[in-house]
């Protein structure tokens, strides 16, 4: 069964991001929402971890949350932007959703 993992915490504040990466299996999808969207940018302390995740998982970022925070630029190559319709679609394409709060 495939899992959609959502993370809503800044990787610089809480360990939700690290724990999600520990649990997300190859082939699964990760969606960054709310304060987790900061992880989608190039040149941060966690960009290497995100790039490593992209090797065998799909990483998405919720564009409206990125826009809201004024940082919709310099995204890590391979991080895919989705809107809310895309968020809904991801939940239909996976069997379960795990929210890393």
């Amino acid at each position: 069964m495939s899992i959609l993992h959502t993370i809503n915490k800044s990787p610089f504040e809480k360990d939700s991001f690290q724990t999600c990466l520990r649990y997300a299996k190859a082939g699964s999808s990760i969606l960054l929402i709310e304060d987790a969207v900061y992880a989608a940018r190039e040149g941060t302390d966690v960009s290497d971890a995100v790039k490593a995740a992209i090797q065998d998982k799909s990483v998405f970022v919720l564009l409206p949350d990125l826009d809201a925070r004024g940082l919709n630029s310099n995204l890590i190559n391979g991080v895919q932007s989705v809107d809310y319709a895309g968020f809904v679609k991801l939940t239909t394409e996976n069997d379960t959703v795990q929210s890393w709060l």
Binding site: I3, K25, T96, Q98, W100, L101
Partner: peptide, 11 residues
């Protein structure tokens, strides 16, 4: 074990 679940409730 997580991969085998139907419902994941995170707290």
């Amino acid at each position: 074990i997580f991969a085998d679940q139907d419902i994941m409730l995170n707290f």
